[in-house]
Design a protein around this nucleic acid. Structure first.
Length: 573
RNA sequence: UGGGCUGUAGCCAAGCGGUAAGGCAGCGGGUUUUGAUCCCGCCAUGCGGAGGUUCGAAUCCUCCCAGCCCAGCCA
């Protein structure tokens, strides 16, 4: 993590940060004395890695709890053992802590409450509000009706409670096969809300559970388990995404029909939906399993672990969440906003360095062969506390191919035949000669320097361009991985303009990773050797880069490009 | 065509009957040994549409239109 990383952004009091409907809702409840303090929860299912969308949910739940001096629980919503794994619970914990949040008490699991769920189901059966249904899954679907036509009652709906109770016990004992029996709650088969048409609350699964092992072969459904888990934990505000709006009547129904005092309030908000990304765990898993990326933490992945490896900071992610706002309107967030957030965060916190990514050699004809000048440049243009960095100026230096043009337009403020440019922190040089290979490619530039321009403006002319460079002798060869957006279209999952829905993997950006070999100023390499955890650097005029947490070593530095600097020259071109 | 929800600038978003905040993007200018940063200015007679109520409507009422979600023994 960066030495300049600030963990506490705008959280502390409820008055800070922008207001939004959830905040107002909580303020009202607090003011009315409805609750004394708030308890929220973040309830991920451990069936995949957390992504940027979860970061938003985390920011909302933990952030609100912090702002109102309440607490937030972390609860694994682990009611479907077939899809879940401890690998994911570990990753989830790591990601939340990395984001800078602390859950209250132990990590909780819905599976901690399996016995409670069972008892409450027994209660519902006893009071005639639930029954064991032995329709097949296909029949249940048929009986459910459609969006526009009502369903019809299961023939098992009115069987005696004792019979259901006995069957339920048998289900628990493993005496029934998967799909042959389930528990349903008795509500209304003609409800316009399909979730209320006698929803299933328990199903049989002979699956090993990552927390409870083979203790159970019946597992509760989300709608049944979630509200009760919330109530058991004394959650005051159960915040979830919009698609659960239709489930709220069921959430309330369950709690109203069992003997439990606490009745949390479910409130829905719009989930984060950034363009040029996908946030479907199923599809992200496909990218990993299909080896389209190197893993869940591939620096191009929108996962928290991917963003972390890419070089994103917790502060930038929080800034991004705050900038996107909280509402009930389903919208699309421009991926550019995430880039703005990390640039904004790193501008003040990243020390500067120079790294030439596409080297072309420059020989200073009027500079002595063995001369080495020790120059000094500040490590941050606006913050003295970053100190100075040392540069060696020698007869041969590298500059970037992009900073030279043979036929340069007037607006090109860089090197061109006969033109002058400033080598950042050093002298002004003039291009006298262009050396090409047989293919006609420029391989070297012969330049002359003006010895009277170190630390001062040249006499009688103005040189607008400043380019970065690295001396041939002391600079360090490094590998740099240039990342770009994983997808080349804004909506990788949507139909194109012809209404054709392609497989989302067809929309992968073939240019999302380019590996180049460049030369890094020695000072930066030394800093990294002394402190590998130093965090991101700004490679001046290029962007922000961080050493790859997995592949980089002191002997072989490997950098990930986090994001480029804003480039107005790109627009002029 | 049942139910739920949402429409304020290119993208987010505040606004809660008193005359359209803010951020991002964009545009113009200034500073600058990073075409970065920073600073200044511009950017909705308009709030999905049409009516209505009112001295006054993005806010209230009526109708209409568009988009999203729901028919897993997934969450």
């Amino acid at each position: 993590m960066s030495t300049h990383d600030e963990l506490n952004s705008s959280e502390g009091t409820a008055n800070e940060g922008p207001t939004h409907f959830l905040k107002q809702h909580i303020e009202k409840d607090l003011a009315a004395g409805k609750v004394e303090s708030i308890v929220t929860r973040f309830p991920p299912e451990p069936n995949g890695y957390l992504h940027i969308g979860h970061a938003k949910a985390i920011w909302i739940n933990f952030g609100l709890a912090n702002q109102f001096k309440g607490v937030c629980h972390l609860r694994m919503d682990d009611t479907n053992p077939e899809k879940e794994d401890t690998e994911y619970v570990e990753a989830i914990k790591t990601d939340i802590q990395w984001l800078g949040y602390e859950w209250f008490g132990p990590v909780r699991y819905a599976s901690d409450y399996f016995e409670d769920f069972y008892k409450y189901a027994q209660e519902l059966i006893k009071t005639g509000k639930a029954y064991v249904c032995q329709l097949t899954p296909d029949e249940i679907r048929e009986y459910r009706g459609t969006l526009t036509s009502p369903g019809k009652n299961s023939p098992y709906r009115d069987r005696p409670a004792e019979e259901s109770l006995a069957l339920f016990a048998e289900m628990r004992e493993g005496k029934h096969k998967e799909g042959t029996a389930c528990v349903r709650v008795k509500i209304d088969m003609s409800s316009p809300n399909i979730n209320m048409r006698d929803p299933v609350i328990y199903r049989i699964r002979f699956a090993e559970h990552h927390q409870t092992g083979d203790k159970w072969c019946i597992y509760p459904m989300y709608d049944y388990a979630h509200c009760i888990s919330d109530a058991i934990e004394g959650i005051t505000h159960s915040l979830c995404s919009l698609e659960f709006e239709d489930h709220r009547p069921l959430y309330d129904w369950i709690l109203d029909n069992i003997t439990i005092e606490c009745h949390p309030q479910q409130i829905e908000f719009a989930r984060l939906n950034p363009n040029y990304m996908i946030t479907s765990k199923r599809k992200l898993k496909k990218l990993v399993d299909g080896e389209y990326v190197s893993g869940w933490n591939d620096p191009r992945m929108p996962t928290i672990s991917g963003l972390r490896r890419r070089g994103y900071t917790p502060g930038a992610l929080r800034k991004f969440c705050e900038a996107t706002g909280v509402s009930k309107a389903n919208g699309v967030i421009d991926a550019g906003l995430l880039e703005w957030a990390i640039r904004d965060d790193l501008d003040s916190s990243a020390p500067r360095a120079m790294c030439v990514l596409d080297p072309i050699k420059v020989t200073i004809s009027n500079y002595d062969e063995d001369k080495v000048e020790n120059l000094e440049l500040s490590a941050h243009p606006k913050d003295e506390s970053f100190g100075k960095r040392k540069l060696n100026f020698t007869k041969e230096v590298w500059i970037d191919r992009q900073d030279f043009m043979e036929d340069a337009p007037k607006k090109f403020f860089r090197l061109a035949p006969g033109k002058e440019v400033r080598l950042r922190g050093s002298y002004i040089i003039k291009c006298d000669e262009v050396i090409k290979n047989e293919q006609g490619e420029v391989v070297e530039l012969i330049c002359s320097y003006d010895p009277d321009t170190l630390g001062k403006k040249p006499e009688g002319r103005k040189v607008k361009g400043v380019i970065h460079w690295a001396d041939v002798k002391s600079s360090v060869p490094v590998e740099v991985r240039l990342y770009d957006r994983l997808f080349s279209v804004p909506s990788p999952e949507a139909a194109d303009e012809n209404g054709v829905v392609k497989e989302f993997t067809e929309n992968l950006n073939p240019e999302s990773l380019k590996v180049v070999h460049g030369y890094l100023e020695a000072d930066c390499a030394e800093k990294l050797k002394a402190n590998p955890e130093i965090g991101a650097f700004q490679f001046e005029r290029e962007g922000y880069f961080v050493t790859d947490s997995i592949d980089s070593s002191a002997d072989k530095l490997i950098f990930n490009k986090i994001v480029s600097l804003k480039d107005s020259w790109e627009k002029v071109k």
